[in-house]
Amino acid sequence: MAEMRMRDALHDALREEMLRDERVFLMGEDIGGYGGSYAVTRGLQTEFGPERVRDTPIAESGILGAGIGAALGGLRPMVEIMTINFSFVGIDQIINNASKFSYMSGGQFNVPIVIRMASGGGSQLGATHSHSLEGMYAHFPGLKVVCPSNAADAKGLLKRAFRDENPVIFIEHAALYGTKGEVPDDPDFLIEFGKASVLQEGTDVTVIGYSGSVHQAIRAAKLLEEQEELSAEVIDLRTLRPLDIETVVQSVKKTNRAVIVEDDWRFGGFGAELSAQIMERAFDWLDAPVARVSGKDVPMPYNRNLEFAALPSEEDVVEAVLAML
């Protein structure tokens, strides 16, 4: 075990997978000489050469199309989209090609591509550069959607992504790159998809988050304990597709209450899907309607105070919990 930042854990995962499997190569804007916008690929071009760590033009559709072609041809590409906001430019490749080839070819072809993207707001990047689209990608059948909240999970899940035979959307919250955590050194450290982690056990309410919102959930649990003497169970979904609804349902059966925390917009968001599944699977165990604490239903404001107001906070979570009691 070693303490490291999430960006270094991701770096190590990429490096270990490149060492393990020669078919693995990386493509993206500024990932080679510059080392990546969030410094995840720093040093990898020097170590593995420009053939395996390729700088590309600013052309998301082209990068993704080339990556999908390479995957179809038997390689294991990792495409880095500088931020999730730019994936809109290449989304046709992701939805119409990557997610569907296996289905449309009756399983004759598959697309083992890993698409990494930085996501989330909170850094005053304005309305067009602050999206949280985890839920949107989770909408499409054929995609796996992975969104770690800490360094160890980031490493274990990214390594696992390279061993998948199908496309994996790997979403990294930009505000988490610098967060530190203990990470196993084991080169075979993998975290299975579809296994949520219970970060804290509790009895009064289940607070569910993913990616950045896990941290609001944890801080809210602390406030609930200190200020209200309430015991919250905190669940990190880790992957939205596949979704570990079983862990959520087991928890709700114990606590009888659920609050979902998401950076994403509330309307038609992932929280709505999760809320519906909880209702379908645990209706008779609910003591209150499932609550959602979501981003405000507006494009992200640039102004710092407004941006904070638009994102869910731990106080919002506490308020939602108290309103159900």
């Binding site: 009895t203 009064d204 200020q227 209200e228 003497e229 309430l230 009888n256 003591d287 108290l322 009691l325």
Partner: peptide, 16 residues
């Protein structure tokens, strides 16, 4: 049985 939260007069005054 375990109450969801303590009886009001024993708890910190709260909105609940």
């Amino acid at each position: 049985p375990v109450p969801a939260r303590p009886a009001p007069q024993e708890a910190i005054p709260s909105r609940a």
